[in-house]
Design a binder for these strands. Sequence first.
DNA 1: CATTTACTATAACACTCGTTATACTAATCA
DNA 2: TGATTAGTATAACGAGTGTTATAGTAAATG
Lengths: 191, 191
Amino acid sequence: MARPPEPERRLELLDAAVDYVVAHGIADMSLRPLAVALGTQAPVLLHHFGSKEQLVVEILDRVRDRLRALGREAESDQYRSGLGAVWAWVSHPDQGQLMRLFFEVYGLALRHPNRYSNFLGHTVHDWLDEPMAAVDDISATLAIATVTGLLLDLLTTNDRARIDNAMERFLILLRSHADQTTPAPEPSTPR
Amino acid sequence: MARPPEPERRLELLDAAVDYVVAHGIADMSLRPLAVALGTQAPVLLHHFGSKEQLVVEILDRVRDRLRALGREAESDQYRSGLGAVWAWVSHPDQGQLMRLFFEVYGLALRHPNRYSNFLGHTVHDWLDEPMAAVDDISATLAIATVTGLLLDLLTTNDRARIDNAMERFLILLRSHADQTTPAPEPSTPR
DNA sequence: CATTTACTATAACACTCGTTATACTAATCA
DNA sequence: TGATTAGTATAACGAGTGTTATAGTAAATG
């Protein structure tokens, strides 16, 4: 009948919004500043996304995608493997803003589980399933928790040496325990 | 000259505000709802605390006190010791709201380090110094990170069995490593 | 061309925010 | 008693919020 929709525009806005949120956080994001940063106006965002809440949902879905992509990059690391590779990728300064956002959303989600159920329910299991697929649930839980906790420490104290050493010690703990329990252990971290 | 100040009233309001924040979170705390919950009005809070920002600072100082108290309670645990005791106390359901607030503030502090510098700068080192005083920095870093990460998992998934098992496995890892390196290890977790 | 629809621009609405001003009562001291 | 200060109410201000209404332009179909 008439002019066809242009889904490109919507995706363009969404991608730019994700970049903005990664850079500025999501806790006190508001439509008007976001819109001007994107070269448009608040009603345009509402026209495309319906409501702020829906926009936030779609932004966080994209953030989840980026976190999953990070896990896949760790898997394809050619110098390290397993948990060491995950740590190398996740703790890299380039990922600082993204991981900061990760913990920011986590903090908000703890108070409003319903509002962030997509993010909350899936993000942890994304990691359990993909980079940690080869080990049992308990080991994966421990490994992910350690990475998470060290990362939180790193982002707040920025004490790279102390925390890299702690990660190294954790990898040694895992390896020495594997030496005790299995006669012919693999040389790298458990997979 | 005239009517003397009544510091009791101020502390009374502050204590009630801490309870309110522990229950409702601090990210979207605002003066008016807080005031009515405390049976007063927003201008009264500003009269006593100067500004919302100052009130938040004082509330978080109190929250930090409660977290420190939790560490001391873990130290006096008569059934467990060391890291196992810390985990038992910190992961207890009674502390859920407090620990949720802990991660909420952490998430906010990652974006606004200056605003939450008191909380951010001291809370981690409180733990390094008190419950973890007996081990070296690297071991303490690893232990606190693991507790932190597991706690975050517990608060979001509530999967108590899986996470308690992961903690148990971590304690076993530490013990077996101690067995390898020291000839006469202590029976409990490393202190 | 006329119509329909997609997108954009401007203005405004109702609401909440932190904060301030003002008036009022209560308690202490000269 | 009068003066001074502490604490408590009430109202209001300016700013910012998400959202809606309205009008205008752009692009496609009949």
